[in-house]
């Protein structure tokens, strides 16, 4: 069965790029450009993995990540943070790691992505679940 990926990124071109790469790899892809809509999609569509941009208008990626981890149904869905900044550093910068109630995301990917490496990260994150 096709694995289902949810991509949330406010930058349209970035979103289109990720969607095309994932679809070409055989994933079923859902996407949106807004954090709140993303949270609703995640809850309703139960994706196998969520790819999350950090800087977005309205609800930021980090805030969305926290909300997902706080929700019983979404707690186990793997998440990869995708961002133009050094994503891992950005994540740590926001002190989320220090907050032990929130586990670290399953992966980080930096824009612009390296397609093969990005796809293997996605695959690995789904497999470990």
């Amino acid at each position: 069965m096709k694995k289902r990926v949810l991509v949330i990124d406010d930058e349209l071109d970035s979103l289109k790029y990720l969607v095309a790469v994932l679809e070409d790899e055989g994933y079923e892809v859902l996407s949106c450009q807004d954090g709140d809509e993303g949270l609703a999609l995640a809850a309703n569509e139960r994706p196998d993995i969520v790819l999350l941009d950090i800087m977005m208008p309205g609800r930021s990626g980090v805030s969305l990540y926290r909300a997902m981890r706080a929700e019983e149904a979404l707690r186990e869905v793997p998440v990869i943070l995708v961002s133009g900044v050094n994503t891992e550093q950005e994540y740590r910068f926001r002190d989320l790691v220090a907050d032990e109630s929130v586990p670290e995301p399953q992966g980080y990917a930096e824009k612009p992505i390296n397609v093969p490496r990005f796809l293997s990260k996605v695959e690995a994150a789904i497999r470990t679940e």
Binding site: E11, S14, A20, V21, G84, P112
Partner: peptide
């Protein structure tokens, strides 16, 4: 760096669409 990376992401996305 962040802005440039986002634009590179868009450009590379465009290239990906073109080549595929």
């Amino acid at each position: 760096a962040h802005s440039v990376k986002n634009m590179l992401m868009g450009l590379e996305g465009g290239m990906y669409y073109l080549s595929s």
